[in-house]
């Protein structure tokens, strides 16, 4: 659904970073997408492919690492893969450790000079 907007924001960061490093081409981009972020990886791949055409990241491989949700209940410990913010054991409000990520990690560039 809103993967188009996400892909657009991602490409803006990529463009800005490519400029910073003097890169002519971006060949690979690694991102993290949390299970609770509401982003569907396949839809993001598709949007990225379409929107990157004609730009510095055209043809780049988008590697999406899916981060499972993890919550911590102060009484029962850590649970992985639960879609909610309450402890599946005792029902208490739990702390979210991960799962809402939507982050770019790194990118592989060609023709980069000495960047900072």
């Amino acid at each position: 659904m809103h993967e188009t907007a996400i892909a657009q924001s991602l490409l803006e960061i990529v463009k800005e970073q490519a400029l910073l490093y003097g890169a002519k081409k971006v060949t690979r981009i690694r991102i993290k997408v949390g299970a609770l972020s509401g982003v569907v990886p396949e839809a993001l791949q598709f949007a990225f492919e379409v929107l990157s055409r004609g730009g510095v990241a055209e043809g780049a491989r988008l590697e999406i690492e899916e981060v499972p949700s993890r919550i911590r209940c102060e009484d029962c410990g850590v649970f992985e893969g639960t879609p909610f913010l309450v402890c599946p054991n005792c029902g208490k409000l739990a702390e979210l450790l991960s799962g809402r990520e939507l982050e770019i990690e790194s990118m592989e560039i060609e023709d980069g000079g000495e960047g900072s």
Partner: peptide, 14 residues
């Protein structure tokens, strides 16, 4: 060359 970026993709919106 691999460069580390580590940024929130929605940072611009934030």
């Amino acid at each position: 060359m691999e460069v580390r970026v580590v940024k929130d993709i929605l940072e611009a919106n934030e």
